[in-house]
Amino acid sequence: MNITVGIDIGSTYTKAIIIDEDRSILAQDMRPTGFKLTEVAREVYSSCLDKAGLSTDAIDYVIATGFGRHQADFKDLHVTDLTASARGAAFLFPGTRALLDVGGQTMKASRLDDTAKVLSFRLNDKCAAGTGAFLEKTARYMNFSTEEIGALMATSKEPVPISGVCAVFAESEVINHLSLGTAPADIMQGAIQSLVDRSVQLMKRVRAEPEYTLVGGILRFQTMAR
């Protein structure tokens, strides 16, 4: 039985998964990336092995992706996150022709052909206002954890606009809204709506056409997914 490990060393979180030849998930793990990339890659790998009850000898192939992919010194192969996302999206959703990946520090839009080759792509400006990190910071300003964001937004009644194109200016808007007594739920909903607006503009820049596939932890929030 062939067993494969995939490791994604992202800017915010590092994820690992073990699958067998039937593509059944045997184990998975995720933890904050931090600054010791090789160490965290080994930690998620080891955790998955423990959960699956496997040794390294049982693993046939290890592939790494993400911005820290080169730091996984035990890998057999590495691919860019653009390629990994494109291939994965096309495998799960064969009709995919446009892909939006919203990560902790970057937002990427790409247009694919029918073989999952990336024809064009665009990244967000070098600013956290268009990423998941901005949402986390916004939540922390209001003394909420990342896990509480979804429930908080569900209570929003009058979202307020967050129009700053830079994280610093956007954060200033958040602080100003708080000082005016705006409900945290409305601020949070406004923050994620600003990410939605940025993602739409990014998709337009690559001339995206259906079918669309969305990737990234931020998509667990219904507002972003819709």
Rank of each mutant, 00 (worst) to 15 (best):
S120P: 05
A90V: 12
V102M: 06
D101L: 09
S120C: 01
R42M: 10
A129Q: 06
A133T: 15
L123R: 06
L82D: 07
H70F: 12
L152G: 02
K75E: 02
A129S: 14
R87N: 05
T56P: 03
K126W: 14
G104N: 08
R122F: 06
D60L: 02
G130E: 04
A128S: 13
Y61W: 13
T155I: 06
K117T: 14
R122D: 11
M107G: 00
T96C: 08
R122H: 13
P94E: 01
V102T: 14
K117P: 00
M142D: 03
T65W: 02
S85G: 07
G53T: 09
T80N: 01
L123C: 02
G68D: 12
A151H: 07
S46Q: 13
A41N: 01
F67R: 07
A41F: 06
K108V: 15
R97M: 07
D57Y: 07
D76T: 13
G104V: 15
T65H: 04
R111S: 11
K75R: 11
E148V: 05
D76Q: 02
V102L: 05
A151N: 09
D76I: 12
Y45W: 08
A84S: 11
A109L: 01
L135N: 03
A154Y: 12
T131C: 00
K75G: 00
A98T: 15
I59V: 14
A86G: 09
K126L: 15
D73P: 02
R69V: 04
